[in-house]
Simulated assay, not measured.
Amino acid sequence: MRSPIHLTAREQRITWELLELLHGSLDLHEVLRGAYGALCRLVPADHGALCVSLPGHPTAYDWAVADLPPELFAGYAELAPDDFVRSAVMKRPNVVLRESEMLPRAAIERSVMFRRSRELGVRLEQAMAVLLAVEPDWHGGVTLYRDRRRPFSDRERALLQQLAPSIAAAIRTCRRLGDAARRGDVLEAALRREGVEILVVAPPASVLARSAGAEALLERWFAPAERSAGALPAPLAGALGAAAGTPGAGAAPWTRRTRDGHLRVDLVPFAEQGRTLWAVELREGAVAAAPATWRGRLTDRQVEVAERVLRGWDNALIADDLGCTPATIKKHLQRVYDALGVPSRAALIARATARS
């Protein structure tokens, strides 16, 4: 256990400012940008990078601060195994390391990231970094660079080491409470829409939050074999996987229909801290019943066909539901029109609305 170092009056002022910035917001980017500015006054550096890995994707990062040419981090997931800084700190989480403790100088100069920085006109001569192991499935990182051969001192290393737990705590708070607040906004918006229940889902199928009536609705519409704790029912997980696999195409509504009604599910993506989550909106509809006055004029099968027309179903869907062919449905429907004296689907729906 390291003892806290004695801070000068100036260092103490900057440290208090940095701590206020770390805990003054739930916006991760705002927190880390503010912390980076204060940190560079405490530990002078020419460049820096502060990042958080995306949950479940240890080589994909949300770069909250990347005070370097953006080209350096292009395609970083593929470059990560060749980043000597990341490779070193991953082996010693929560411990501040300087470049001399990462690789011999000759090996650093042969490394992919060093040579790439030179090609981009940046001289990353010295580095100091720490991996912040904040959760089992994601982590944060702080790296400071100097473009002259002026090594980071023992005191500068000690200062960053002393601040690392506070930076990790701020990242954890932003991820947990900030994400929860954003999910809460999504849920609150859904609750303002009458008749809508909602799930907030991280692909492929993890349910992160749900509105009050969502679980009961899922139990009504999905068999136990289709459901599992904390996850989307299997049919919805398949629909979400298809939607997530075609970004920008727009997700078509998913619908399940029974004799007692229908369930419509809309899949709406939204961004949260560099990843895409999905709002799964659930709307339940009852059967559109034929007016009682029709029943004396139509056969039972004609009533079944008419009621499915009132739900907005086409002939193919009605045929599939009733176990016959679309041609048979077309014949039944024509007899419905004749019996009720209407010329078309639209007129049939209008007649039902008038309840005659």
Rank of each mutant, 00 (worst) to 15 (best):
S87Y: 05
H29I: 04
L131Y: 15
A64E: 03
Q126A: 11
G37Y: 14
H29Y: 00
M90V: 15
R123W: 07
A45C: 07
R41I: 00
I108R: 15
R110K: 06
E125D: 13
A60E: 13
E135M: 13
L32F: 00
L54H: 06
L97Y: 08
E109Q: 15
V65D: 00
M90W: 14
D67N: 11
L79T: 05
V112F: 14
R86P: 00
D137T: 15
P55H: 01
N94R: 10
A133N: 13
D67W: 05
M90T: 12
P104R: 03
P58T: 01
R116P: 04
A133V: 08
W138T: 08
A38Y: 08
L68I: 05
E135K: 15
L79V: 09
A45Y: 05
E99F: 10
P69K: 09
M128L: 04
L124P: 06
L28A: 14
E125H: 10
E109L: 10
A77Q: 12
V95S: 02
D62P: 03
E30Y: 11
A77S: 13
V65P: 03
D137N: 14
P93D: 01
V65K: 02
I108D: 07
Q126N: 07
C51H: 01
R98T: 15
L28Q: 12
R123Y: 11
Y76D: 01
V134Y: 09
V31I: 01
S111D: 04
A49R: 12
A106H: 09
E135F: 13
M128I: 02
S111A: 08
A66K: 04
E99V: 10
R110W: 02
R110P: 01
L50I: 07
M90G: 00
E135S: 15
S100I: 11
Y36V: 00
F114D: 06
E101Y: 07
H139Y: 13
E30W: 12
P81K: 08
G121T: 03
R105T: 12
M128Y: 03
V31P: 03
A66G: 02
F114I: 07
R33V: 12
R110C: 03
P55R: 08
T59D: 11
A88C: 05
R86D: 14
G34I: 02
A127N: 09
V112N: 01
R41C: 00
A88H: 09
A129P: 08
H29D: 08
V85Y: 07
F114N: 06
A127M: 13
V134G: 04
H139D: 04
E78T: 06
E101G: 09
E119I: 07
M102R: 08
R123H: 14
P69Q: 09
G75W: 05
V95R: 14
A88K: 10
A133T: 11
P81V: 06
K91P: 00
A74G: 05
R41L: 08
V134K: 04
D67E: 09
L97I: 05
V52A: 04
E99A: 08
L132N: 03
V52P: 01
A60T: 14
E71K: 02
L131E: 11
C51T: 11
R92M: 03
E119S: 12
E101N: 05
G140E: 04
W138S: 04
L54R: 11
R123I: 07
L120R: 06
L68R: 02
S100F: 09
V43L: 10
K91E: 13
A74R: 12
R118Q: 14
L120F: 11
A77W: 09
P69M: 07
R86K: 08
A129G: 10
R110H: 04
L50Q: 04
P70K: 14
V122T: 12
